[in-house]
Design a protein around this nucleic acid. Sequence first.
DNA 1: ACCTGAACACCGTTCAAGT
DNA 2: ACCTGAACACCGTTCAAGT
Lengths: 236, 236
Amino acid sequence: MTQQRRAGARAPLSRERVLRAAVALADETGAEAFSMRRLAQELGVVPMALYKHVANKEELLDGMVDVVVGEIDPPAAGADWKSSVRQRILSARRVLLRHRWAARVIESRTGPTPAVLAYLDSVIGTFRDGGLSADLTHHVMHALGSRLLGFSQELFDGGGAAAPTAPTGAAGGTAPDAAGAYPRVAEIAAAAAHDTGSVVGGGCDDQFEFEFALDLLLDGFERLHRQGWTSAPDAP
Amino acid sequence: MTQQRRAGARAPLSRERVLRAAVALADETGAEAFSMRRLAQELGVVPMALYKHVANKEELLDGMVDVVVGEIDPPAAGADWKSSVRQRILSARRVLLRHRWAARVIESRTGPTPAVLAYLDSVIGTFRDGGLSADLTHHVMHALGSRLLGFSQELFDGGGAAAPTAPTGAAGGTAPDAAGAYPRVAEIAAAAAHDTGSVVGGGCDDQFEFEFALDLLLDGFERLHRQGWTSAPDAP
DNA sequence: ACCTGAACACCGTTCAAGT
DNA sequence: ACCTGAACACCGTTCAAGT
């Protein structure tokens, strides 16, 4: 009976174990190096064994997304809608920073998974309970977009403006003399003095930029809500 | 001498011709089906022939992005910064809608290409000439993010909320009884009555949602600009 | 009935052989 | 010197053969 677990051997495969191993492997190797074959190897199993627990790679990725989304904090009790949503989204951002492959994988999904739908449903509930109309909430959710899950498409991680200024080693090459050819980019890149206080040091404060845009949107939502904004034309 | 073009044959390969063919192929088949081998086949050429004109697939994709970005309208003359940026971004959006693979490919780039840098430099110029500080412009560029190039990460193309409501055929399957399990999602999905006037018809007006968020951000930028907003803590 | 090795149809790119 | 076929090291997945 206990024969099935032998020689201190690996636990029998299960969907749970496959998903957890997949998340761990992606955490270590990144989304690009991740493959069914590598995952099977990591689990000490022949590739085809995975197909007993997931239909194919797409379904595996869906499952991995659900694991990650499940790590987002539940909504805080007793806060107003604006700070509640803010906290939730910043929690999602911390989760995404733990699993850096996740943003790219989420982007590649063609449809929402149950865990994502449950999360969206919960956030929508916060807006609706806060008094926002279904109409406004609809557009608000669109406006937040991927920010809801803690990421946003920064052009070329760091905002494109980061590369030309700091000679920090990486990235260069593509645009020699960028500072001369694109003076506005160089000027703007140098204007990120908030965390170090020094203009040199280089690099942007991603957290600051994320919250800047997030707060701008949330403030805009609040303003529209107070004004009783509606998307329908004000004719009858 | 004129022997090189023979039998009404194909023009000799060049970087230009490779890039144009690549864009055309991606337009037809989408980003997923696009491959070096398929492109070579389309050009009636052995795969290795491409490597005379591009170093590898990454460089080819960079070139394709530059072709697309080159299609964005130049800045309109004599407009205020806000409407100038708005027009430019809506032009970028029209370009991206012509090349639906482009958003995904741009996301995958690790650094900005020359054409992208030139575009960013130009947009930054519009903000700076409009009187915005380098500091504010820096954060504004971050806040716009991928929206600058005409797209934004919509969760699961259509906003996740679209799927559960309309039985329009596609997408379903993953979440049966979604309307029951996620009632807020269903309510919000039904609240998109702006273009058809009918609640049924289903689907979101992507253009409306894109402009909604864009205008919310631009309005926020204008408000901060008028207030003389600075990111530095107001203590010295 | 279950599991799995080999095979299939790809992929980007290297490399050596042919001209 | 140039071009290119075969080969390499992958990939996700099918399928038939083995137990």
